[in-house]
Amino acid sequence: MVSIDDMRLAAALAQAESLSAAARRLNVTPPALSMRLRKLEHSLGSKLANRDARRLSLTAEGERFAQQCAALLEQIEALPDNFRAPGAELSGTLRLAAPFGYGRKHIAPLLSRFARLHPQLTVHLDLRETPWPDRHDSDAVIHIGSVRDSSWVARTLAHNERWLCASPAYLAAHGVPQGPEDLAAHRCICIRENEEDVTLWQLRKPGLSRAVRVAPAMLCNDGAVARRWAEQGHGVVLRSEWDVRDAVARGVLVRVLADWRAGAAPVQLLVPVRKDRSARVQALVGFLEGGRWG
């Protein structure tokens, strides 16, 4: 007999890179999880996973079992919604994934308000470097940038340009770029994310388009770190408007080449295309679409 705990175990193994990571998801110790996995494999008569101290990979049977378990768990979690009386309080678990920086600054405070409105609901916020397409078992995903995936619906929550910025001290020492071609001679700070070509900066204005290849003086996969480096005078950074707007307002950073557009990266709420989308997800969509976005 396969229990719900067994199904949760299989789903956690499919979402984790190691046995210890899966154990953290289930709030158990790695030895306890390993013992549960051995018992499940013995019960099924199949090896579900290959594991060592650092890596975990599912066998073909394990992947098939985990997929079926995830589908069954989703149906089980949706049962309360199917019998929920109109106006009844939301319950169950809602899982939302978001990028680290934006998630901390904007999503976490909004989810705090959402949780107060629905005290019977368990809310999981999974902050990740790249929540899309590494979405795991999320009910919804916050993604910055465009997405093309027919199995998910994208709802734009906020328009978000990308700005070129540098500190007043840096510009005083190195001069202000007068055109995109000047950037090649400047110290530039690049952000490595989303598999983009981060050293090729595309700039446009009406009737003109320029692609500039910059040689990064500093490179990081954390946008907040890159912004702080720019504030400290290390160079020019190309960063999302949501992250640098306050620094520009305070005069800590200055926009350069403001008449050129560096491309939009809208804040998107991604939800699966499903007719039977849960009341929890529907409530989250309505709440976030009605929220104030910066």
Rank of each mutant, 00 (worst) to 15 (best):
Leu9Cys: 06
Leu13Glu: 02
Ala16Ser: 15
Glu17Pro: 08
Leu19Pro: 00
Ser20Lys: 10
Ala23Gly: 01
Arg25Tyr: 07
Val28Tyr: 00
Val28Lys: 00
Thr29Arg: 02
Pro30Gly: 04
Leu33Ala: 04
Ser34Val: 11
Met35Ile: 10
Leu40Ser: 00
Leu40Glu: 01
His42Pro: 04
Ser43Gly: 06
Ser43Val: 02
Arg51Lys: 15
Arg51Tyr: 06
Asp52Glu: 04
Leu56Gly: 13
Thr59Ala: 09
Thr59Gly: 08
Thr59Glu: 11
Ala60Thr: 12
Gly62Thr: 05
Glu63Gln: 14
Arg64Asp: 03
Ala66Trp: 05
Leu72His: 10
Leu72Gln: 12
Gln75Gly: 08
Ile76Phe: 12
Ile76Asp: 06
Leu79Glu: 15
Pro80Val: 12
Asn82Gln: 08
Pro86Asn: 06
Gly87Ala: 07
Ala88His: 08
Glu89Met: 12
Glu89Arg: 12
Gly92Asp: 01
Gly92Pro: 03
Thr93Asp: 10
Pro99Tyr: 07
Phe100Arg: 10
Phe100Leu: 15
Gly101Lys: 05
Tyr102Phe: 15
Lys105Gly: 02
Lys105Ile: 10
Ile107Gly: 02
Ala108Pro: 08
Ala108His: 15
Leu111Ser: 04
Phe114Ser: 00
Phe114Asn: 00
His118Thr: 13
Pro119Ala: 05
Leu121Lys: 03
Leu125His: 13
Asp126Met: 12
Leu127Gln: 05
Glu129Lys: 11
Pro133Tyr: 01
Pro133Met: 00
Ala140Gly: 11
Ile142His: 09
Gly145Cys: 14
Val147Asn: 08
Asp149Arg: 11
Ser151Met: 10
Arg155Ala: 12
His159Arg: 10
Asn160Gln: 06
Arg162Leu: 12
Trp163Val: 04
Leu164Ser: 03
Ser167Met: 05
Pro168Ile: 03
Pro168Val: 02
Tyr170Asn: 09
Tyr170Lys: 10
Tyr170Ala: 11
Tyr170Arg: 09
Ala172Trp: 06
Ala173Glu: 15
His174Lys: 14
Pro177Ile: 07
Gln178Phe: 13
Glu181Tyr: 03
Ala184Pro: 01
Ala185Leu: 06
His186Pro: 03
Cys188Asn: 07
Ile191Phe: 14
Ile191Glu: 03
Glu193Lys: 10
Glu196Leu: 13
Thr199Pro: 03
Leu208Glu: 15
Arg210Pro: 04
Arg210Phe: 15
Ala211Val: 08
Ala211Phe: 00
Pro216Cys: 04
Ala217Glu: 09
Ala217Asp: 08
Met218Gly: 14
Leu219Asn: 07
Asn221His: 09
Gly223Ile: 11
Trp229Arg: 09
Ala230Gln: 02
Gly233Ser: 05
His234Trp: 12
Val237Pro: 03
Val237Lys: 03
Leu238Cys: 01
Arg239Glu: 11
Ser240Glu: 03
Ser240Gly: 11
Ser240Trp: 01
Trp242Ser: 06
Arg245Pro: 01
Asp246Thr: 05
Asp246Lys: 04
Ala249Arg: 05
Gly251Asp: 04
Val252Thr: 06
Val252Tyr: 01
Val256Tyr: 02
Ala258His: 13
Asp259Trp: 00
Trp260Val: 08
Ala262Met: 11
Gly263Pro: 11
Ala265Pro: 02
Ala265Trp: 07
Ala265His: 11
Leu270Gly: 09
Pro272Ser: 08
Val273Tyr: 09
Ser278Ala: 09
Gln282Arg: 13
Ala283His: 08
Leu284Cys: 00
Leu288Gln: 05
Leu288Pro: 01
